[in-house]
């Protein structure tokens, strides 16, 4: 209870939570409110928002309902962002834990690989992965996770480096616990809070990466993605600018919500930090 109160005391964090719940509600109600395929022809193309009660946010150049695409897009953005984040954090924890816990040669080796991943611009690596493995929703999600793991890995390594010689770990060693048990059951829970906070950064970036990929028409064309809609609206940008404008606002608010929640979590998890 104290945690929640501490969290909500921060107005930014409260706004972020409300926004995030709103996007979640959109994703959850997409099938109820717009049961039809959001990518199917719905009406006369290029109707402006608020002109036709049937299409609150108007229709795009192919006569698809923009509101339906926004609602279904919330689902795709959150899904891709969430799964990619899980992949990135999991990979990061495994690499960072092994490197930080064992140290020495294996640490050197793993950190060189991490450095290699950080030297290649992540969006370019994403393009290469999509070019090689295709752009279905599964490969795009995995690819985003794969380009996002180095930063969490460094964070996890730093945590493990400081924790591995603590007394409770030494006690576990004297008790004869297996390394895997020490790493995952004893050290990891202690290393989790900063990683959870960082997960919000990864997720915000993952959503932005997916939307950029979709905007370039390199993501899965068969799902209603906000980035896809923006790219689609580019053709009629001069006159019907709303087609691109509306999904952009949706992306902005979602990413903003995720970062605000992350910041709020950080402040609530570290109450000793001075408020700045």
């Amino acid at each position: 209870m104290g945690f929640l109160r501490r969290y909500l005391r921060n107005p930014g964090a409260a706004i972020g939570l409300v926004l995030l719940l709103l996007v979640l509600a959109m994703a959850g109600s997409a099938d109820l409110l717009y049961p039809r395929d959001p990518l199917a022809l719905a009406g006369r193309p290029l109707q402006w928002p608020f002109q036709n009660a049937r299409f609150l946010l108007g229709t795009d150049a192919s006569g698809r309902d923009i509101a339906a695409q926004i609602f279904h897009g919330a689902r795709i953005s959150l899904l891709i962002g969430f799964v990619a984040t899980i992949v990135a954090i999991a990979l990061g924890i495994i690499v960072g834990a092994v490197a930080g816990y064992y140290g020495g040669l294996i640490d050197d080796l793993l950190m060189r690989v991490t450095e290699a991943f950080q030297t290649v611009p992540s969006f370019l690596l994403l393009l290469v992965l999509v070019a090689v493995f295709g752009s279905s929703i599964v490969t795009v999600t995995l690819a985003i996770g794969i380009v996002s793991w180095p930063a969490p890995a460094r964070l996890a390594r730093a945590e493990f480096l400081t924790l591995r010689n603590r007394e409770f770990v030494q006690a576990c060693r004297t008790l004869g616990l297996r390394d895997s048990a020490i790493i995952f059951r004893e050290i990891l829970p202690n290393a989790m809070p900063p990683l959870i906070v960082y997960a919000s950064v990864v997720m915000a970036l993952a959503i932005l990466l997916e939307s950029a990929l979709a905007f370039l028409n390199l993501s899965d064309p068969n799902v209603a993605s906000w980035g896809n809609l923006i790219g689609h609206g580019r053709g009629v940008l001069r006159t019907q600018w709303y087609v691109s404008a509306i999904p952009g606002v949706a992306i902005l608010l979602t990413v903003l919500a995720v970062s605000l929640v992350g910041q709020g979590l950080n402040d609530a998890l570290n109450p000793r930090l001075k408020p700045r």
Binding site: G12, A204, L208, S211, A212, F215, G227, I230, R234, L237, W241, S244, A245, P247, G248, I251, L252, L253, V255, L256, S259, L260
Partner: peptide, 16 residues
Amino acid sequence: LIFYATPSFWFGLMGI
């Protein structure tokens, strides 16, 4: 915070 959350390609299009 808002700049951080803005997709660059969208900002570019709106700028155009």
